[in-house]
Amino acid sequence: MAVERGDVEHVATLARLAFTEEELVAFTSEMNGILALFEELREVDTDGVEPVFRVLRRRNVFRGDEPGEMLPPDEALANAPDRHEDTFRVPAVLPND
């Protein structure tokens, strides 16, 4: 099943990526090439087969509820593109008006 330009635009919105018109066109054909590769899996009979999400069958690893080492705020914020005191600063979420 082929994806069309509109599908690619929708996925780009979900992924928070912006593309130019030219990129969208190129991407649509590339995606179809790769999806054709994925279509090979249709040949495989997987009726009654359980999926694997983790290769080691280990689950629910707990630790004691004790405070451990913490990064001091200045170190945690050292890579922030913009900060205000001990917080990350971002543009307005809601319009100003």
């Binding site: 994925f38 495989v44 999926p51």
Partner: peptide
Amino acid sequence: QYYLKAQKVRTLLA
């Protein structure tokens, strides 16, 4: 169609 199917094929390979 895609992700779940791939994880099942993963079981078969394992």
